[in-house]
């Protein structure tokens, strides 16, 4: 039932700003992250911890996680940034 990757390390490579967005994204920060294991790939993630460009972060998600974290009935959100690696 769960996705292939649950939690992984990634590097923050840039911010994304959307002019128009789904209500579930209102007030949230979006960052582009690139998995440490696969630098050619990327994912646009919702920041939950105040990460910045250049940070190495813990990222991931699974069905239902964004719904519970943000207390929403419906959340079309795949990946959350949930930690900054020291």
């Amino acid at each position: 039932m769960l996705g292939v990757e649950l939690v992984y390390l990634a590097k923050v490579i840039g911010p994304v700003v959307c002019t128009v967005k789904h209500p579930a994204y209102e007030g949230r920060t979006l960052l582009i992250i690139s998995p440490i294991d696969d630098p050619d790939d990327y994912e646009i993630a919702v920041d939950y911890v105040g990460a910045g460009v250049g940070d190495t972060v813990i990222a991931g998600g699974a069905p239902g996680v964004a719904q519970s974290v943000f207390n929403l009935d419906k959340a079309p959100i795949k990946t959350l940034i949930m930690g900054i690696v020291d």
């Binding site: 911010p15 994304v16 700003v17 959307c18 002019t19 128009v20 967005k21 789904h22 579930a24 994204y25 979006l30 079309p76």
Partner: peptide
């Protein structure tokens, strides 16, 4: 589609 990316980005 859940967002439209802004011009600065």
């Amino acid at each position: 589609i859940v967002g439209i990316v802004d011009d600065c980005t």
